[in-house]
């Protein structure tokens, strides 16, 4: 069984983000790592390597970056890293990224593709299901449980208002929700291996991928900071009464 994990390199959750001068650009501090949900996806793939002898590949798409994420995936235990590295992927539309990843996956078709539920930078949750659609694969999002049966996967997934169990014929694509697997911390051997690993690279032209146009940006802006907090003093009963009064009369939300 061949399992492909989609790994995205994203800025650290703590990375500073600054809107430049006139709102025309965004400066993001260069502290990067493997996306939170992709780490869970990697772990789920490694579980299948251990239980079903799955062969695992990590695929990423990036413009001149992505190595950090690849190394992390390899350090955890992924065997082959493949990076679509192309300047046209800089700020690319999600559909371009999905086409690139789909084309890379198609080079050596997978039985199961695992993406993250969403990336922590755009929180879009678009690319996984897009890849499924492009490759014509059935898709289950937000997986919190995974079992392989003969030619099928049984997926437990979160849905609005509860959970469900679904059976998908392979090949299929799933996206990983928190709870699917607890990512391991790479050991010394894995880390050493990751430092030396040869990352295979390709680009959009080689894959025959056409970019989807980028949606023009009108402006970036920083978050409209809330006005300074209004502290409410007094014993619990008095503070509660004053809070309710403010919520009704000033904030008008009650």
């Amino acid at each position: 069984m061949r399992v492909v994990v989609l790994v995205k390199e994203v800025p650290d959750l703590e990375a500073a983000v600054k809107v430049t001068g006139d709102g025309s650009g965004l400066e993001v501090e260069k502290r990067r790592g493997l996306n939170f949900f992709d780490e869970i996806a990697v772990e789920a793939a490694l579980k299948l390597k251990e239980s079903h002898g799955a062969v695992t590949t990590a695929v990423g798409a990036s413009a001149g970056a992505g190595v950090e994420a690849m190394r992390r995936a390899v350090a955890m235990g992924i065997e082959t890293p493949l990076l679509v590295d192309d300047p046209a992927l800089d700020g690319a539309d999600s559909l371009t990224v999905a086409r690139a990843l789909a084309a890379a996956i198609a080079l050596e078709p997978a039985d199961l593709v695992i993406a993250g539920k969403q990336a922590t930078d755009d929180e879009a949750g678009l690319v996984g299901p897009m890849v499924a659609e492009i490759l014509g694969l059935p898709c289950a999002t937000r997986a919190i449980g995974l079992e392989v049966e003969d030619g099928f996967v049984l997926v437990t997934r979160e849905i609005d208002g509860g959970e469900e169990v679904v059976r998908l014929p392979l090949p299929a694509l799933i996206t990983a929700e928190k709870g699917l697997a607890e990512p391991r911390v790479p050991g010394m051997a894995g880390t050493m291996k990751a430092m030396k690993v040869q990352i295979e690279r390709t680009d959009l032209a080689t894959l025959g991928v056409q970019a989807h146009p980028v949606l023009p940006v009108a402006a970036y802006r920083t978050v409209g900071k809330r006005p300074p907090v209004k502290m409410i003093e007094g014993e619990p009963a008095d503070a509660a009464a004053e809070l309710v009064r403010l919520l009704r009369q000033e904030a008008k939300v009650l």
Binding site: D93, S94, L95, A98, Q118, D122, E123, A124, G125, L126, V127, G128, P129, M130, A132, E133, I134, C139, T141, I159, D160, H212, L215
Partner: peptide, 19 residues
Amino acid sequence: RTREVMPRLAARLGAWALS
């Protein structure tokens, strides 16, 4: 539900999708 349907529609129709 939107996050299952919208991205796949975008891929099928060649549309922009924003979450």
